[in-house]
Design a protein around this nucleic acid. Sequence first.
DNA 1: TCTGGGGTCCTAGGACCC
DNA 2: TCTGGGGTCCTAGGACCC
Length: 424
Amino acid sequence: MKKAFILIDCNNFYASCEKVFQPKLKNKPVVVLSNNDGCIVARSNEAKALGIRMGQPYFECMDIIKKKSVSVFSSNYTLYADMSSRVMNILELFSPMVEIYSIDEAFINYEFDSPEKVNEYALKIKKTVEKWTGLSITVGIGDTKTLSKAASYIAKKNDLYKGILSLSFRDDIDEFLKKIPVYEIWGVGRQYSKHLFNHGIENACSLKYADESWVKKTMTVCGLKTALELKGISCISLSDTITAKKTIISSRSFGKPVEKLDDLRESVAMYVSNASEKLRKQSSIASIISVFINTNRFKDEPQYSNYSSSSLQVPTSYTPDLIKCANNILEKIYREGYKYKKAGVMLSGIVPKDQIQLNLFVPLFDSEKKIRIMKTVDCLNKKYGNNTVFTGSCGIKKEWQMRRDLKSKNYTTDWDDIPVIKLP
DNA sequence: TCTGGGGTCCTAGGACCC
DNA sequence: TCTGGGGTCCTAGGACCC
């Protein structure tokens, strides 16, 4: 028996989610935009073929989008999160060892005694997910996580593999690795690939055989782990438990430039509400809060950005207290006369709510009343939708709010948006 | 007009302690 | 000719991921 890592990766995830609910878009180019309708964050295969790049600003590719009638969507995270959990639930039927790695990827551990069994297993997963969700996936298999990623990369590049490739039980792995440029290796980004290239290491195979001590010296232990994983030595294990976040960030670009402190205050209160809701969801409290604001770096106008943090006397997850603290920070860093583009809030010093550092002089816990209020607010928002109940300081009109002009419906989570099927 | 958001881990260097 | 040494903790910054 041999343990293998199996990477399941949804193809063009956001774009595919949109296509599932609009069958007429089959074989048509589709793109999905980032928050604020800023950049391209997902492209269907047809859109990729038109040369639209990942991360490209929307306005830059407006021409080709119009000319080729590309369908454009604002990002609809409610829909994508729900589709993602459908996929993950299916995977859990196939193995008790599933690590949800991102919204559209998961690693599975499974043991096999032959290459035929590997392919049989992969094909079954692929067919089930595609039939039950309408989303297509790629399955990459290898003796380590990094090799499963490599397999998935090759499978996506070449239709020959029909979305499944295993590098387990093979002695010609190097032939595959030679076809992977260093910057496509999992764990090697822009900086390291430049560095490797300068030293004549141009593909995954040459990194595999590079001098280990040199790799460690110039790319830290992370780089060394990557090199070892390419050799088939597993250094990055599967973690199938959800660990609590150590930092929680909430931030957004504004739909239009913001100049007034009052508007910034509203937005920051909103971000604190989001962040502290996430904090309570993982049953934690935070002891440090930071606020940052900045102007639009792409514009030729006076620039200003700043950030400051403050420690809370009593670690908490109580939104109003956190908003108060954030407000003080904001007033400290705000300067008049600038056009602000973005603001954000970060919570850190996060610990489980029942694990507080003892302190002799201040009361330690949030009062029972505060805890009950937050619980009620969270319940109402869960039942009746986000922001059904919110703190007054978040504002009502929210003129600063991000743009999402092209959002699709919440087909799977909202009774009013459920698709209607018309029979002929 | 228009350029995303949310995370993790590692290291170097400084402060501080005995 | 001459400096103590070893350890921990914290932070900022840099790398990476999706």
